[in-house]
Amino acid sequence: MADILRTALYLFISVFVILNYGLLLNGLVRKIVARAHGRVGPPIWQPWLDILKTYAKRSAISHGVMFFLGPIFRLAGGLGTYLFIPAIYGSVMFANLSFSGDLLLVMYFIFFGQLGMALGAGEGGHPNSAIAVGRGLSQMTSFELPFALSVIALAIQYHSLSITEIVAAQQGGILNWTIFTNPLATFAGLFALLGMNMHSPFDIVLAPQEVPIGPPTEMQSSFLGILQTNRAIFLSAKLVLFMNLYLGGATNIFAMMLKTFMLYMLSVVVGVSFPRFRTEQSIRFFLGVPTLLGLAAVIIFML
């Protein structure tokens, strides 16, 4: 019993930290993007205010049961992704619920939230959300391919499907990181990360000039608040996962912050400097070089 309580407490702390870290990352990035625009940008605590404000709305309109469930599925997806990733290697508190086959479960959870959101957004009835959901799902399917190939290559390389073991195998010096031992798989994975983070040129789901912010068009008040919460958790969860897989994990919280921040900056820098792809261009992109890189990585380690 005490074990369970302790685990629950640890999980709670872990989620709380990662939520705030996600929001901080968000605020930081807004500031950095603003500098690229030549602006000062919003204060760094703006994401907290935004989230508080959306929860504090006095009215909320629902369009049906699925509309309720959409954001909840999304949050479940985000939480699920995070809870099965060991955030900090060797830390009991941030080990979360990691177990031997967690990599597969995490990959499933990355998908899960999107699907839930698709149902919720569809119930909203706004045609733009429907279009954006279609775009999102097709793009996701396409970046899932290089990502899956990259993960398969990693699984072959490390003979494991446990994130903890993959991180453990990368310890002992910078040259043990996957980015140096298996650069092909790493680059395939990083391309997929660009797609997952949905910054330009892969921001076809939220594309404000095309389908004004897409799936959450009808979401308001606490529905949007849940989505914002999820965005912070899911973002950091993805970054932590990629850090674990490719950058050797982290042994303390500062290393984690540094590495995830660098990973996120990759998306941000690419996002600031490129316009948006069309849907089919994006799909074609993922099925091109990144997939070939992934395939090559798998084949090399098969041999």
């Binding site: 807004r30 603003a34 625009h37 030549g38 602006r39 000062v40 940008g41 919003p42 204060p43 703006q46 205010l49 404000k53 959306t54 709305k57 309109i61 404000p208 004004p212 912010i213 959450p216 068009t217 009808e218 979401m219 308001q220 949007l224």
Partner: peptide, 22 residues
């Protein structure tokens, strides 16, 4: 909205849908 006056500094941001804007 742009760099000269930069309303984002004051926590003001544009939002494309009436559902979310205040």
């Amino acid at each position: 909205m742009t760099a000269r006056y930069d309303m984002y500094r004051y926590g003001i941001a544009p939002r494309p849908t009436p559902r979310q804007s205040s």
